[in-house]
Design a protein around this nucleic acid. Structure first.
Lengths: 231, 231
DNA sequence: GCACTAGCTTGATCCAGATCAAAACATCAG
DNA sequence: CTGATGTTTTGATCTGGATCAAGCTAGTGC
């Protein structure tokens, strides 16, 4: 592991307040690996042996059943994923694969639980992380149940705009994945983009220009309780 | 609060391992209230001031946005709900109302956080509870994204059968709520029941008789990673 | 530079589910 | 017992989204 990775990892919310000794212990037990794109890191149903932290690149969490598959979330640096399975010592409920070449830190689940048991700050940080993840999925679920697919796209574009601080947003991954994440087919994503044209949405490959924010927001009707990832 | 309620509450997973002193402290700070049916206990967007525990009755968690509303979950005795908001000291992301006359214990959020900070067993029990809730929503989300509405109903019936240990299951609440929870309209729930007739599903009001379990399971194709609430 | 492949778009069609309306059924209050 | 009300069912129609097919575009390897 590169020494310059450590500060970034140390600053993750899940390590907030953890003692240096315990953090070092976790890092000693871990290893950092670089994976090519489309590499499956986790398969749903398998026991949760490692806590994964995406240090660089991008990881797709997806689920399948009976021949159907859907993208559940995209994970960016620097963040962990599927923490609940580790703490519960249960199987993973989702699979994970790299969306692009990625460096991933893998911390043995056993080590995580050991430090969890002895470091109160770490266990509290875990609680906060779990609470945030849980609330994030509630928001996604509401998004799916309460909105049409075009509304989901419109709100997603507004969210990208806010995050990238620009009226020209770049889609962070290809449209096939975005469609799946939003709960629709790629054909429908294409049509949804077209439906949003009159609201000032201009598409050029993976670059989307928003030229009438007010109209788009009026159509999308964002709700903090769904769209604000920080509350 | 009736003394005979306490043992039941004490046995909740979230109080596993908590010291008697701390448990008593929480109970002293709490109050138990009986609400009539259709009483709104929580409104989404409000600060999370109480941790609620359903002692008797049934509570519906629902979400709304832009004039649309959907049932997110049903809560039975004895369980808590919306724990994440309490721990994060954030607003509720869902509303709650009694589905029938219910007795609900309300523990001030401040007290919960105080005991959380000083009782390691309690904070760990909270983590497990959060992990379980989080995993539960992941399963619901997969259910919604990966299955048709008829498949969701079929799997739900199989789950009721397993829980009630009988081939004649009683729907725990009215069909309007069940439809909403499964992500469909009441009309479509009715049609979905009809679609399942050839698979041995017989409807008599809120009593459903399953006469061909094998056919129903073949149709439903249950998956432990979605349907098993215990893993 | 060309051939191949994957992603994306567009068109046509189908269908799962919603909406609207009406009727039937069950429950409750007077 | 009757009238009112809410739930449920059924029918008709609509529509959002899926599926299938084909063509276009961009990127990659030889």
């Amino acid at each position: 592991m590169r020494p310059d990775d450590l500060p970034q990892i140390r600053e993750l919310n899940i390590f907030e307040g953890i003692s240096d000794e315990n953090f070092d212990e976790l890092m000693r037990a871990s290893f950092l690996q670089t994976f090519p794109a489309q590499m499956e890191l986790i398969e749903e149903g398998e026991p949760a042996d490692f806590l994964h932290i995406v240090v660089e690149g991008c990881v797709e969490l997806f689920a399948s059943t009976n021949g159907r598959e859907s993208t559940m979330a995209m994970v960016y640096p620097v963040s962990s994923f599927i923490l609940a399975a580790i703490l519960r010592d249960a199987v993973y409920l989702m699979s994970a694969r790299t969306n692009k070449k990625s460096r991933v830190l893998m911390i043995p689940a056993v080590s995580v639980r050991e430090v969890f048991d002895k470091d109160p700050a770490f266990s509290k940080a875990m609680v906060m992380e779990l609470a945030n993840c849980y609330r994030g999925v509630i928001k996604e679920h509401k998004n799916l149940k309460l909105r049409t697919s075009v509304e989901r796209l419109a709100n997603r574009l507004l969210r990208y705009r806010q995050k990238q601080q620009s009226d020209q947003v770049t889609l962070p991954y290809d449209k096939k994945i975005l469609a799946s994440n939003l709960g629709m087919t790629p054909e429908n994503l294409s049509r949804a983009f077209n439906t949003l044209k009159p609201y000032g949405v201009k598409v050029e490959g993976n670059k989307i220009t928003l030229t009438d924010i007010e109209a788009l927001a009026t159509f999308a009707k964002p709700s903090k309780l769904i769209d604000d990832l920080a509350i």
